[in-house]
């Protein structure tokens, strides 16, 4: 059994799967739901936070699974990161640069998620005033321009990591083998990156429409 399961191969496959399905899927959903902030404080608090929150069955279980998936993807990602010795200074190719960026954005994303979860989800759990008006809470966070920059960098890092990770998944699972297929999937992933980064920036703008 142990042999046919192939723990090493399984871990690698789980690493790319957890990145795509729970974590990447949630990122898409999360940026989309928050892009509705442009509809205003009342709509956001009632229909996005309350409305979608009410629709989510087994919310705590979902959150725990998501946390476990991020933890596995992150910890196993550290193992993968440890195995590489980036050499972009000697070999200045696009693919090599994306290899390095995938590793840098892994760290920025992990740090951003930690900070974001502590200052929003956990803050709301500790303080009822925050939980009752998440819109106002976010608006206050974005009053500091440093936070706006950190959020844009954090979100763009995460969306790059997802889009580039999807391109890598295509090769690792043998869906895109030929250079032409890999070039086409690069275009598709670039489009995905642009669209979801736009959603994220749109969400930030929605909370504080005097920003841009």
């Amino acid at each position: 059994m142990a042999d046919s399961l192939n723990a090493h191969f399984l871990s690698r496959k789980l690493h790319s799967l957890t990145g795509l399905v729970p974590v990447g899927g949630f990122l898409l959903f999360h940026l989309w739901e928050n892009s509705m902030a442009r509809k205003g404080e009342q709509f956001y608090n009632e229909h996005v936070v309350q409305g979608i929150g009410d629709l989510l069955n087994y919310k705590l279980a979902i959150e725990l699974c998501l946390g476990a998936a991020i933890l596995f993807h992150g910890v196993y990602g550290l193992v993968v990161w440890w195995q590489g010795r980036s050499n972009t200074r000697r070999f200045r190719y696009g693919g090599n640069l994306r290899y390095l960026l995938q590793r840098i954005t892994a760290f920025t994303t992990l740090a951003f998620i930690l900070w974001h979860v502590i200052t929003t989800r956990i803050a709301a759990g500790l303080d009822e005033a925050v939980e009752n008006n998440l819109f106002l809470h976010m608006q206050r966070i974005y009053e500091d321009p440093v936070n706006v920059v950190l959020y844009i960098v954090g979100i763009a890092g995460a969306t790059f990591h997802l889009a580039n990770g999807l391109w890598l998944l295509g090769i690792n699972w043998g869906l895109t083998t030929h250079p032409r297929a890999q070039k086409l999937s690069m275009w598709a992933c670039t489009a995905l990156f642009v669209v979801i980064t736009f959603l994220g920036v749109h969400a930030i703008w929605g909370f504080n429409q005097r920003l841009f």
Binding site: F9, K13, I171, N172, W173, G174, L175, T176, T177, H178, P179, A181, Q182
Partner: peptide
């Protein structure tokens, strides 16, 4: 890289 992509498919299968 084409070989690596094809082996990605062969090993997954």
């Amino acid at each position: 890289t084409t070989a690596i992509g094809e082996l990605g498919r062969q090993t997954t299968a």
